[in-house]
Amino acid sequence: MNSMVALIKREFLEHRGAFLYAPLALLVTFTLAIAAAIGANKLRLPYEVGVPSALKYYEIGFAFIAALWLFYLMVALFFYYADAFSADRRNNSMSFWKSMPVTDFKVLSSKMLAGMTIFPALIFLAVLVTGVVLYFHTMLAVVAMPRLIVPSAFEVIASSLRIGFFALVYLALALLWYAPFYAWVGALSTVFRRWSIPLALLIPGLIGLLENLFFSDTGPRAGYFLTFIRQRADFGPDRDAMQAAFLSAGPVDVGLLLQSLFASIDWVQLAGGLIFAVLAVYAASEYRRRVIAT
Protein backbone atom coordinates (compact mmCIF):
# COMPACT_ATOMS: atom_id res chain seq x y z
CA MET A 1 0.00 0.00 0.00
CA ASN A 2 2.81 2.40 0.87
CA SER A 3 4.51 1.66 -2.44
CA MET A 4 1.28 2.45 -4.33
CA VAL A 5 0.95 5.79 -2.50
CA ALA A 6 4.58 6.57 -3.34
CA LEU A 7 4.04 5.69 -7.01
CA ILE A 8 0.93 7.89 -7.25
CA LYS A 9 2.81 10.72 -5.54
CA ARG A 10 5.54 10.34 -8.15
CA GLU A 11 2.93 10.73 -10.89
CA PHE A 12 1.73 13.94 -9.29
CA LEU A 13 5.25 15.36 -9.05
CA GLU A 14 6.01 14.50 -12.67
CA HIS A 15 2.74 15.87 -14.09
CA ARG A 16 1.84 18.67 -11.70
CA GLY A 17 2.31 21.17 -14.52
CA ALA A 18 -0.83 20.00 -16.36
CA PHE A 19 -2.98 19.34 -13.31
CA LEU A 20 -1.83 22.00 -10.80
CA TYR A 21 0.13 24.86 -12.36
CA ALA A 22 -1.95 25.12 -15.55
CA PRO A 23 -5.29 25.19 -13.64
CA LEU A 24 -3.85 27.83 -11.29
CA ALA A 25 -2.81 29.93 -14.28
CA LEU A 26 -6.27 29.54 -15.81
CA LEU A 27 -7.90 30.55 -12.52
CA VAL A 28 -5.77 33.67 -12.26
CA THR A 29 -6.48 34.56 -15.90
CA PHE A 30 -10.23 34.07 -15.39
CA THR A 31 -10.23 36.19 -12.23
CA LEU A 32 -8.30 39.04 -13.80
CA ALA A 33 -10.31 38.96 -17.04
CA ILE A 34 -13.69 39.22 -15.31
CA ALA A 35 -12.39 41.83 -12.86
CA ALA A 36 -11.04 43.90 -15.76
CA ALA A 37 -14.39 43.66 -17.58
CA ILE A 38 -16.20 44.89 -14.49
CA GLY A 39 -13.63 47.62 -13.80
CA ALA A 40 -13.85 48.87 -17.39
CA ASN A 41 -17.64 48.89 -17.14
CA LYS A 42 -17.98 46.45 -20.05
CA LEU A 43 -20.86 44.52 -18.51
CA ARG A 44 -24.39 45.45 -19.53
CA LEU A 45 -27.74 44.13 -18.38
CA PRO A 46 -30.35 43.99 -21.18
CA TYR A 47 -33.28 46.37 -20.62
CA GLU A 48 -35.89 43.68 -21.17
CA VAL A 49 -34.53 41.54 -18.34
CA GLY A 50 -35.99 43.91 -15.77
CA VAL A 51 -34.81 43.48 -12.17
CA PRO A 52 -33.69 39.85 -11.90
CA SER A 53 -31.93 37.94 -9.19
CA ALA A 54 -28.40 37.04 -10.16
CA LEU A 55 -28.78 33.56 -8.68
CA LYS A 56 -29.92 32.03 -11.97
CA TYR A 57 -27.02 33.72 -13.81
CA TYR A 58 -24.67 32.45 -11.16
CA GLU A 59 -25.98 28.88 -11.45
CA ILE A 60 -25.75 28.81 -15.23
CA GLY A 61 -22.32 30.46 -15.16
CA PHE A 62 -21.04 28.06 -12.50
CA ALA A 63 -22.35 25.02 -14.39
CA PHE A 64 -20.87 26.27 -17.67
CA ILE A 65 -17.44 26.86 -16.12
CA ALA A 66 -17.60 23.46 -14.40
CA ALA A 67 -18.30 21.88 -17.80
CA LEU A 68 -15.25 23.65 -19.25
CA TRP A 69 -13.07 22.37 -16.41
CA LEU A 70 -14.32 18.82 -16.94
CA PHE A 71 -13.63 19.09 -20.66
CA TYR A 72 -10.11 20.28 -19.87
CA LEU A 73 -9.64 17.31 -17.54
CA MET A 74 -10.79 14.74 -20.09
CA VAL A 75 -8.48 16.11 -22.78
CA ALA A 76 -5.54 16.44 -20.37
CA LEU A 77 -6.03 12.85 -19.19
CA PHE A 78 -5.90 11.58 -22.76
CA PHE A 79 -2.48 13.16 -23.27
CA TYR A 80 -1.40 12.12 -19.77
CA TYR A 81 -2.04 8.44 -20.45
CA ALA A 82 -0.48 8.72 -23.90
CA ASP A 83 2.69 9.89 -22.16
CA ALA A 84 2.77 8.32 -18.69
CA PHE A 85 2.84 4.65 -19.70
CA SER A 86 6.07 5.19 -21.66
CA ALA A 87 7.63 7.98 -19.57
CA ASP A 88 10.05 5.63 -17.81
CA ARG A 89 11.62 4.66 -21.13
CA ARG A 90 12.05 8.30 -22.11
CA ASN A 91 13.68 9.57 -18.90
CA ASN A 92 15.97 6.51 -18.54
CA SER A 93 14.46 5.38 -15.23
CA MET A 94 13.26 1.99 -16.47
CA SER A 95 16.22 0.14 -14.96
CA PHE A 96 15.64 1.81 -11.61
CA TRP A 97 11.96 0.84 -11.42
CA LYS A 98 12.67 -2.72 -12.57
CA SER A 99 15.18 -3.04 -9.74
CA MET A 100 12.52 -2.04 -7.19
CA PRO A 101 10.33 -4.64 -5.42
CA VAL A 102 7.24 -3.55 -7.38
CA THR A 103 5.73 -5.30 -10.36
CA ASP A 104 5.22 -3.67 -13.74
CA PHE A 105 1.48 -4.12 -13.28
CA LYS A 106 1.63 -2.15 -10.04
CA VAL A 107 3.63 0.63 -11.69
CA LEU A 108 1.15 0.97 -14.55
CA SER A 109 -1.80 0.60 -12.18
CA SER A 110 -0.49 3.55 -10.18
CA LYS A 111 -0.46 5.63 -13.34
CA MET A 112 -4.03 4.57 -14.13
CA LEU A 113 -5.19 5.30 -10.59
CA ALA A 114 -3.46 8.68 -10.50
CA GLY A 115 -5.44 9.73 -13.56
CA MET A 116 -8.66 8.46 -11.99
CA THR A 117 -8.19 9.99 -8.52
CA ILE A 118 -5.67 12.68 -7.67
CA PHE A 119 -5.74 14.61 -10.94
CA PRO A 120 -9.56 14.77 -11.12
CA ALA A 121 -9.58 15.83 -7.45
CA LEU A 122 -7.34 18.79 -8.29
CA ILE A 123 -9.59 19.85 -11.17
CA PHE A 124 -12.69 19.49 -9.00
CA LEU A 125 -11.03 21.75 -6.44
CA ALA A 126 -10.47 24.25 -9.25
CA VAL A 127 -14.21 24.03 -10.03
CA LEU A 128 -15.07 24.93 -6.44
CA VAL A 129 -12.59 27.81 -6.32
CA THR A 130 -14.00 29.12 -9.59
CA GLY A 131 -17.45 29.18 -8.01
CA VAL A 132 -16.14 31.34 -5.15
CA VAL A 133 -14.44 33.70 -7.60
CA LEU A 134 -17.61 33.91 -9.66
CA TYR A 135 -19.65 34.90 -6.59
CA PHE A 136 -17.30 37.73 -5.65
CA HIS A 137 -17.40 38.95 -9.22
CA THR A 138 -21.19 38.90 -9.04
CA MET A 139 -21.01 41.14 -5.99
CA LEU A 140 -18.69 43.55 -7.81
CA ALA A 141 -20.95 43.56 -10.85
CA VAL A 142 -23.54 45.57 -8.88
CA VAL A 143 -21.33 48.62 -9.45
CA ALA A 144 -21.68 48.26 -13.21
CA MET A 145 -25.28 46.96 -13.13
CA PRO A 146 -27.18 48.66 -10.28
CA ARG A 147 -30.43 46.84 -11.15
CA LEU A 148 -28.80 43.50 -10.46
CA ILE A 149 -29.96 41.81 -7.24
CA VAL A 150 -27.02 39.91 -5.80
CA PRO A 151 -27.97 36.59 -4.16
CA SER A 152 -27.23 36.10 -0.50
CA ALA A 153 -24.32 34.00 0.67
CA PHE A 154 -26.75 31.31 1.86
CA GLU A 155 -28.39 31.11 -1.58
CA VAL A 156 -25.01 30.86 -3.29
CA ILE A 157 -23.78 28.17 -0.90
CA ALA A 158 -26.95 26.12 -1.40
CA SER A 159 -26.72 26.54 -5.17
CA SER A 160 -23.01 25.70 -5.20
CA LEU A 161 -23.61 22.55 -3.17
CA ARG A 162 -26.29 21.37 -5.58
CA ILE A 163 -24.32 22.02 -8.74
CA GLY A 164 -21.05 20.89 -7.14
CA PHE A 165 -22.65 17.60 -6.08
CA PHE A 166 -23.94 17.00 -9.59
CA ALA A 167 -20.52 17.88 -11.05
CA LEU A 168 -18.85 15.43 -8.65
CA VAL A 169 -21.21 12.57 -9.52
CA TYR A 170 -20.92 13.36 -13.22
CA LEU A 171 -17.12 13.45 -12.98
CA ALA A 172 -16.90 10.12 -11.14
CA LEU A 173 -19.19 8.35 -13.61
CA ALA A 174 -17.52 9.95 -16.64
CA LEU A 175 -14.12 8.74 -15.47
CA LEU A 176 -15.44 5.20 -15.11
CA TRP A 177 -17.20 5.44 -18.49
CA TYR A 178 -14.12 6.67 -20.36
CA ALA A 179 -11.63 4.45 -18.48
CA PRO A 180 -11.33 1.95 -21.39
CA PHE A 181 -10.41 4.78 -23.79
CA TYR A 182 -7.67 5.97 -21.45
CA ALA A 183 -6.40 2.43 -20.85
CA TRP A 184 -6.38 1.89 -24.61
CA VAL A 185 -4.17 4.89 -25.37
CA GLY A 186 -1.98 4.04 -22.35
CA ALA A 187 -1.45 0.47 -23.53
CA LEU A 188 -0.55 1.74 -27.00
CA SER A 189 1.89 4.17 -25.39
CA THR A 190 3.73 1.26 -23.78
CA VAL A 191 4.49 -0.11 -27.24
CA PHE A 192 4.52 2.91 -29.55
CA ARG A 193 5.31 5.73 -27.10
CA ARG A 194 3.96 9.08 -28.30
CA TRP A 195 2.76 7.58 -31.57
CA SER A 196 -0.06 6.21 -29.43
CA ILE A 197 -1.91 9.54 -29.80
CA PRO A 198 -2.64 9.20 -33.56
CA LEU A 199 -2.78 5.40 -33.39
CA ALA A 200 -5.49 5.49 -30.71
CA LEU A 201 -7.73 7.12 -33.31
CA LEU A 202 -6.28 5.58 -36.48
CA ILE A 203 -6.64 1.92 -35.48
CA PRO A 204 -10.39 2.12 -34.71
CA GLY A 205 -10.83 4.12 -37.90
CA LEU A 206 -9.10 1.44 -39.96
CA ILE A 207 -11.15 -1.31 -38.33
CA GLY A 208 -14.32 0.60 -39.18
CA LEU A 209 -13.11 1.17 -42.75
CA LEU A 210 -12.36 -2.52 -43.28
CA GLU A 211 -15.74 -3.48 -41.88
CA ASN A 212 -17.46 -1.11 -44.30
CA LEU A 213 -15.40 -2.42 -47.23
CA PHE A 214 -16.21 -6.07 -46.62
CA PHE A 215 -19.69 -5.78 -45.10
CA SER A 216 -21.02 -2.62 -46.74
CA ASP A 217 -24.50 -4.03 -47.39
CA THR A 218 -25.24 -5.12 -43.83
CA GLY A 219 -25.63 -3.41 -40.51
CA PRO A 220 -25.95 0.31 -39.72
CA ARG A 221 -24.72 3.02 -42.06
CA ALA A 222 -21.29 3.54 -40.46
CA GLY A 223 -20.85 -0.13 -39.59
CA TYR A 224 -21.30 -1.91 -36.30
CA PHE A 225 -17.86 -1.04 -34.94
CA LEU A 226 -17.85 2.71 -35.56
CA THR A 227 -21.48 2.98 -34.47
CA PHE A 228 -20.55 1.26 -31.21
CA ILE A 229 -17.56 3.57 -30.70
CA ARG A 230 -19.69 6.65 -31.36
CA GLN A 231 -22.37 5.49 -28.94
CA ARG A 232 -19.72 4.50 -26.39
CA ALA A 233 -18.16 7.97 -26.54
CA ASP A 234 -21.52 9.62 -25.86
CA PHE A 235 -22.05 10.38 -22.17
CA GLY A 236 -24.26 12.70 -20.19
CA PRO A 237 -27.87 13.54 -19.36
CA ASP A 238 -30.52 14.05 -22.00
CA ARG A 239 -30.31 17.50 -23.59
CA ASP A 240 -33.98 18.23 -22.94
CA ALA A 241 -33.48 17.38 -19.27
CA MET A 242 -30.50 19.74 -19.13
CA GLN A 243 -32.53 22.59 -20.58
CA ALA A 244 -35.48 21.90 -18.28
CA ALA A 245 -33.22 21.84 -15.22
CA PHE A 246 -31.23 25.00 -15.96
CA LEU A 247 -33.84 27.18 -17.68
CA SER A 248 -36.55 26.70 -15.07
CA ALA A 249 -37.69 29.69 -13.02
CA GLY A 250 -36.49 28.18 -9.76
CA PRO A 251 -33.12 26.73 -8.71
CA VAL A 252 -31.47 24.13 -10.89
CA ASP A 253 -33.23 20.80 -10.47
CA VAL A 254 -30.27 18.54 -9.67
CA GLY A 255 -32.57 15.61 -8.99
CA LEU A 256 -33.85 15.75 -12.57
CA LEU A 257 -30.28 15.92 -13.89
CA LEU A 258 -29.14 12.93 -11.84
CA GLN A 259 -32.19 10.92 -12.84
CA SER A 260 -31.52 11.64 -16.50
CA LEU A 261 -27.81 10.87 -16.09
CA PHE A 262 -28.39 7.49 -14.43
CA ALA A 263 -31.04 6.59 -17.00
CA SER A 264 -28.64 7.35 -19.87
CA ILE A 265 -25.91 5.00 -18.64
CA ASP A 266 -25.67 1.45 -19.92
CA TRP A 267 -24.38 -0.13 -16.72
CA VAL A 268 -23.46 -3.40 -18.44
CA GLN A 269 -21.27 -1.48 -20.89
CA LEU A 270 -19.73 0.48 -18.03
CA ALA A 271 -18.78 -2.75 -16.23
CA GLY A 272 -17.48 -4.25 -19.47
CA GLY A 273 -15.41 -1.15 -20.12
CA LEU A 274 -13.80 -1.39 -16.69
CA ILE A 275 -12.92 -5.04 -17.34
CA PHE A 276 -11.38 -4.02 -20.68
CA ALA A 277 -9.39 -1.27 -18.92
CA VAL A 278 -7.95 -3.73 -16.39
CA LEU A 279 -7.06 -6.20 -19.13
CA ALA A 280 -5.42 -3.44 -21.21
CA VAL A 281 -3.29 -2.32 -18.27
CA TYR A 282 -2.35 -5.93 -17.53
CA ALA A 283 -1.40 -6.57 -21.18
CA ALA A 284 0.72 -3.40 -21.18
CA SER A 285 2.46 -4.49 -17.98
CA GLU A 286 3.23 -7.91 -19.47
CA TYR A 287 4.72 -6.28 -22.57
CA ARG A 288 6.75 -3.99 -20.32
CA ARG A 289 7.93 -6.96 -18.22
CA ARG A 290 8.73 -9.36 -21.03
CA VAL A 291 9.85 -7.15 -23.93
CA ILE A 292 11.24 -3.93 -22.47
CA ALA A 293 14.39 -4.95 -20.64
CA THR A 294 15.68 -1.49 -19.73
Rank of each mutant, 00 (worst) to 15 (best):
I123Y: 00
L125A: 01
H137P: 10
T117A: 07
F154K: 15
V132L: 13
G131F: 04
W195R: 14
T138S: 12
T117F: 05
V132E: 10
A172W: 03
M139R: 13
F119I: 03
T130E: 08
H137L: 09
G186T: 11
E155F: 06
L128T: 07
L122G: 02
R193K: 15
L199I: 14
P120V: 00
G164H: 00
A158N: 14
F166E: 04
A200Y: 07
I197M: 11
L125F: 03
L125S: 02
L175H: 03
A187M: 11
V142I: 14
Y182F: 10
I163C: 06
F136A: 09
P146D: 00
P151Q: 09
V156G: 09
V169Q: 07
V150I: 12
M145N: 07
I118F: 05
A144H: 03
R194M: 13
A179K: 04
V150C: 10
V191Q: 03
I123D: 00
I197H: 10
E155Y: 08
L168V: 03
V133Y: 02
S159P: 02
L173N: 05
P204A: 10
L128V: 06
F192C: 14
F119M: 04
V129Y: 01
L202M: 11
F181Q: 14
R147K: 08
L125M: 02
S189H: 10
L161K: 08
V156M: 13
V129G: 01
V150K: 06
L171N: 03
F154M: 14
F181K: 12
V133K: 05
A179S: 13
R193C: 13
I203C: 14
P180G: 13
F165E: 01
A144E: 10
V129K: 01
A174G: 07
R193I: 15
R147H: 06
